[in-house]
Simulated scan of single mutants.
Amino acid sequence: MTIAQPQRQPGMPRFPRGVLFDLDGTLLDSAPDMLATANAMRAERGEAAMTLAQLRPHVSRGSRAMVGAAFPALQAQARDALVPAFLAIYERELGRHGTPFADIEAMLARIEADGGRWGIVTNKPEYLARQLLPLLGWEQRCGVLIGGDTLPERKPHPMPLLHAADALGLAPEACVYVGDDRSDIEAARAAGMPSVVALWGYRLPEDSPREWGGDVMVETPGELLDPARWPALAG
């Protein structure tokens, strides 16, 4: 289905030339895939299924955090030993239950129609993130994909964002990073890149997004259909 694009009049705000996104909790509501994974592991160990509400806040913190939420009684070393099994089962469940958040597809289409480019910088292992792209129809549209193991450093280090901006042929300050976790915003700030806090994503109750120092806070992806809601860029 082709998404109709509004005509841009002279003087109207434009979307950033480059937009980099976190994946889980920002572009993709992947918590249902993660829940299927956690519950498969719990069933193997005779544990009752956990709920989406129990797991969802931990998704942006990665596989170790989700294993910890699924098996809170285990010591750290025992939980860490379960991470490879979690990733193996998740690969099987990949893309089977989760979907892009509402209005994400329309937002990406607006960015593209305005001449912008976009990419993904995630702490998910690259091999898993890359498998998702064709399932979402994004493999030809995503300008760059950086996973948590692509480079020697991962978020909140700025290296992945700087590398991704360079791959798009843009200076960091000409891009915007959109993410739902403190590490996303810290990475953007360290890279000199304006940021958007995605409040629709995954957060623990004690998280305080207003303290993260993002340039813009947005409640829903639909707000980003308006280029005026994005951070102002120099030049």
Rank of each mutant, 00 (worst) to 15 (best):
Glu93Pro: 10
Ala36Leu: 13
Ser63Ala: 09
Glu93Phe: 14
Glu91Asn: 03
Phe71Glu: 02
Val83Leu: 03
Leu82Pro: 04
Val67Ser: 05
Phe86Thr: 14
Leu27Trp: 00
Tyr90Val: 03
Ala53Cys: 08
Gly62Leu: 05
Ala38Leu: 05
Val59Met: 15
Ala49Tyr: 02
Glu47Gln: 05
Thr51Cys: 03
Leu55Asn: 00
Glu93Cys: 14
Met50His: 11
His58Arg: 05
Phe86Asp: 15
Glu91Asp: 13
Thr37Glu: 05
Ala73Tyr: 01
Ala40Met: 11
Arg45Cys: 04
Leu82Tyr: 02
Gly68Met: 13
Leu74Ala: 07
Ala69Tyr: 04
Asp29Met: 11
Thr99Leu: 12
Thr37Val: 04
Ala49Arg: 08
Arg45Leu: 13
His97Ala: 04
Ala31Gln: 01
Asp33Lys: 01
His58Ser: 12
Pro32Ile: 10
Thr51Phe: 00
Ala85Tyr: 02
Ala49Lys: 10
Thr37Asn: 08
Ala78Trp: 00
Ala43Thr: 00
Pro84Trp: 08
Tyr90Phe: 12
Ala70Gly: 15
Met41Asn: 06
Ala69Trp: 05
Met41Ser: 03
Phe86Met: 11
Glu44His: 12
His97Thr: 06
His58Val: 06
Arg61Gly: 11
Leu28Arg: 11
Arg42Tyr: 01
Thr37Asp: 03
Ala81Pro: 15
Ala36Pro: 00
Ala88Pro: 06
Gly68Val: 10
Glu47Asp: 13
Leu35Glu: 01
Arg96Thr: 11
Met34Asn: 12
Thr99Tyr: 08
Ala73Pro: 02
Ala88Cys: 14
Tyr90His: 09
Arg64Phe: 05
Val67Ala: 10
Met50Val: 07
Val83Tyr: 08
Met34Tyr: 07
Thr99Glu: 13
Ala53Tyr: 01
Arg45His: 11
Leu52Ala: 05
Gly46Glu: 06
Leu55Arg: 01
Leu74Asp: 02
Leu28Trp: 02
Ala85Cys: 14
Met50Leu: 14
Leu94Thr: 04
Thr26Ser: 11
Gly68Ile: 07
Leu87Ala: 06
Glu44Leu: 13
Ala53Ile: 01
Asn39Ser: 13
Glu47Thr: 03
Gln75Gly: 13
Thr37Gly: 00
Ala81Trp: 13
Met66Lys: 02
Val59Gly: 14
Leu74Asn: 02
Thr26Met: 06
Asp29Lys: 09
Met41Tyr: 14
Ala88Val: 08
Arg56Gln: 10
Ala43Ile: 00
His97Met: 12
Arg42Trp: 02
Ala40His: 14
Pro32Glu: 08
Gly62Val: 12
Met50Glu: 05
Ala53Val: 13
Ala85Asn: 10
Leu82Cys: 10
Leu82Asp: 07
Ala69Val: 02
Ala31Lys: 00
Arg92Pro: 09
Asp29His: 05
Ala31Gly: 07
Arg45Asp: 12
Ala85Pro: 01
Ser63Arg: 04
Leu35Tyr: 00
Ala38Asp: 02
Leu28Tyr: 12
Leu87Gly: 12
Leu82Met: 10
Ser63Glu: 15
Arg42Gln: 13
Gln54Asp: 07
Gly46Trp: 15
Ser30Arg: 03
Ala53Asp: 09
